[in-house]
Write a protein that binds this DNA or RNA. Structure first.
Lengths: 214, 214
DNA sequence: CTGCGGTTGTGAAACGTTTCACAACAAATA
DNA sequence: TATTTGTTGTGAAACGTTTCACAACCGCAG
């Protein structure tokens, strides 16, 4: 079903996420099928782009009709690997960490936070949405024997590399990092960075170069 | 100093953000100059990319020596428009909103949250880091006569379009949206989306397609 | 069964970004 | 001054992504 990989670009994967959400909305609006034209219009993309993105993984549409909404949504979920649930651990329950524990969108897509770590004695042992915060010093041992597949890092930049080293040592292969720093990980570990200030900086740049841009 | 714009790509701007942070660290480590080679190595980029990115805006380096750390940092701050402070309003003090109010990285780069809105009666009037939460119904009037330049939207998807319409009506030209939905804004308004689930989905995809990728 | 309007899937063209490769130059050394 | 080492700035090549354009096909109407 899912075609042999011929190196899918990052942009394509990100657009799949977008299509996934759009299709969920369409389903709620009782659409049965959707054309690449309309889907593109809704998400400010081009029809050709929608079709090409999907064609990397198979042919899911019907000529003359478009794509079946629910079926395509499920297909994309399968491609992205969100047709299942993932066990996630969170390191750091400061501002951002706490927000993530309650972030509905994670849960909705099957990302379940099952362990929380912090190095602040006042937080260790406390309860966040039913999870007892563990000591960050125990990361390696606690993760090694767990079923955790993805670790989210929401600690200050200064300690982030230390934490990530532990996480790698525990055998974790996928890390989402919120610290605004470039972490070093071995080649076989997937690392993604989420830096919320960067988008604000982009806005700042846009405002400063206004008339030139549009 | 800053060259005539010849359409700078999004990736280049994002890398400028990265250089900016790297240079700050280098300054703290007492580097006086840095070569494109070393800077690239630190941030897992290529030297040519560093040089080309910078060359769009001028020539800041010295052949044989490299780039002066502090001077280049300041130059990039000027290009990105973060050598000043920006007045920001936040709409929605739920999980994410509250985290953003205390998010140090925003303040550090000159993004100052000066107004907060919410539509929850229990939150209106409450105090977040010295700011009294206003009624979201008053967004248009409150923003119109304010000095707010950027609005951050951290409300549920269902109400996000309504809020953004008000924000646009108030004359705001730059919006950072955390709701996982594609908002519609006029062409002259800059809109950026921050979707934290998307990066997790990317990790999920990577794990599912592991052996094929690396 | 034929023809028509609509839409997909995809090779090829167009476009954009990254990498290469080297002339130009700075500093240091002799 | 001449030579060597090191690094920038940049045009051009290589590469990657997006857009174009159209054959193939679906459903429907006559």
């Amino acid at each position: 079903m899912v075609k042999p990989q011929l190196r899918i670009s990052e942009s394509t994967i990100h657009r799949l996420s977008i299509y996934y959400r759009a299709l969920n909305r369409l389903e709620r609006e009782n659409y049965e099928t959707i054309s690449s034209k309309e889907l593109a219009k809704r998400e400010k993309l081009t029809p050709a782009q929608v079709r090409k993105d999907l064609s990397f993984f198979g042919s899911f549409g019907t000529r003359g009709l478009g794509y079946p909404v629910t079926e395509l949504r499920d297909k994309i979920a399968e491609i992205l690997g969100i047709n299942r649930s993932w066990s996630v651990a969170l390191v750091g329950v400061g501002n951002i960490g706490s927000a993530l524990v309650s972030y509905k969108e994670f849960q909705k897509q099957g990302f379940r936070i099952r362990k929380i770590f912090d190095n602040d004695q006042r937080k260790i042992g406390s309860n966040h949405k039913g999870i007892i915060v563990s000591d960050a010093d125990d990361i390696v041992t606690e993760l090694r024997d767990s079923k955790i597949e993805i670790v989210v890092i929401a600690v200050p930049s200064l300690v982030a590399q230390m934490i990530v080293d532990d996480v790698v040592r525990a055998g974790i292969k996928a890390i989402l990092n919120f610290a605004p720093i470039n972490l070093k990980v071995p080649d076989d570990v997937y690392l993604r960075n989420e830096n919320m200030a960067m988008e604000l900086e982009y806005l700042s740049f846009s405002l400063c170069n206004d008339e030139a841009q549009l």
